[in-house]
Design a protein around this nucleic acid. Structure first.
Lengths: 222, 222
DNA sequence: CAGTGGTCTAGACCACTCT
DNA sequence: GAGTGGTCTAGACCACTGG
């Protein structure tokens, strides 16, 4: 544990102030300029910038685009219940049988914010034996659980999703147009029918810097 | 966007395999050894190691301690409902009046896993005017909302917590014995009484690599 | 083409901890 | 004292994007 405050902490503070004084969407000084300005190496500046990017304050662009101050209020509020029950994604990534013996159906969606920015990835697995013709019959514009209820008469028991943080894998990062080490929220669950049999297993990765996950706790008792 | 796969991705894959082959708690090779072994610079190795540390697979120790493979199953399942309603933390950090005019009471707890590792920080604010003598009367071993119900006859309406990811601030990192840029889950809520008046505002930061937040979605309808 | 961010190297010094 | 992780530097090359 270092006793003195690292230089990139100081850099981070000063760059945060700097970013706050620059309008949303306006260009941020280049890394080489900042290194010169603060009298630090570009490596140290980059370490400080990494934090601001992870916080969602800055957006780095490729090539001549440079770094830009992020627009505020890009975060989307997303309800856990809606995510599990009746989410309608805008784009389907894949849709096929998987598994060594083709015993699972896999559906994958990219979730978008209102401004069309990709903010998450949802992946669901179903047992193929129980849902014959699923691939042919399913319309991705229908919420998955509603479809299962209406076309396969599934009645769902209560669900217990769990949430944690993960780092974006290279594949997820590519699909969501973000960097491979962006912290993300991971929300996973197993849907069971009223008999307790697993019906669907899903896993969702959400960009932590763009998403607020909302939930519900009943009042009254206790 | 680079076309070729960066070397630290390859390093990360190989180091992940390496870590999986080493027993929990056993020492990991030093960064200089690994740089030599994989034929990469220590900087590149460190970048790969950073990811494994953030994932919770490795733990870095100071001085001669070196890097160590983390023990599995250190993650704690924590229910959102329990966190809001009847959490009993093991240690209280502070407990005082705050605000410019001393109009708020602030209580802060460190949350521990079963093995005494700190995994989170909970911070609650109450209006001092409504809860006179709170500081004198409150016993931190009692769940906050139960105390408010029993001693101030508060009846709570439903609560809507929201969750997102944040980076640990230096202060939080120090309290939780982690590094200042560790990704954490942030869970916040406002408790209201049945009249809709805000009673308590709370904010919880949880180590993402040590915590699974569980929630509940009713079955049946829809 | 010039300038950007992304990656990578080979050094260096420090505070720290174990033996 | 020896070796560790934490920090920092001054360079370098690359793929990419805009004018």
């Amino acid at each position: 544990m270092p006793s003195a405050v690292p230089r990139y902490y100081e850099a981070r503070s000063r760059l945060t102030e700097l970013a706050n004084g620059i309008p949303d969407g306006a260009p941020f000084p280049s890394e080489r300029e900042l290194a010169d300005l603060l009298g630090m190496s570009r490596t140290t500046i980059r370490k400080a910038l990494d934090d601001l990017v992870l916080q969602g304050k800055l957006i780095r662009g490729a090539g001549r685009q440079g770094t830009v101050v992020a627009s505020r209020a890009q975060t989307r509020r997303l309800s856990v219940t809606a995510l599990v029950n009746d989410l309608v994604p805008r784009r389907t990534v894949s849709f096929k049988h998987v598994g060594d013996t083709h015993d699972l159906v896999h559906v994958e969606w990219v979730l978008h914010a209102d401004d069309d920015q990709p903010i998450g990835l949802k992946s669901s697995y179903l047992p193929a034996a129980r849902f014959r013709d699923f691939v042919e019959r399913y319309d991705p514009a229908t919420p998955l659980r509603r479809f299962l209820r209406d076309h396969y008469s599934i009645r769902f028991a209560e669900t217990h999703p769990w949430c944690t943080t993960v780092l974006a894998t290279p594949r997820v990062a590519r699909l969501l147009d973000t960097r491979p080490t962006t912290p993300m929220m991971s929300l996973a669950w197993v849907s069971r029918d009223t008999a307790g049999v697993p019906v669907e297993r899903s896993w969702t990765a959400l960009r932590g810097d763009r998403t607020h996950l909302t939930m519900h706790i009943p009042g009254g008792a206790e």
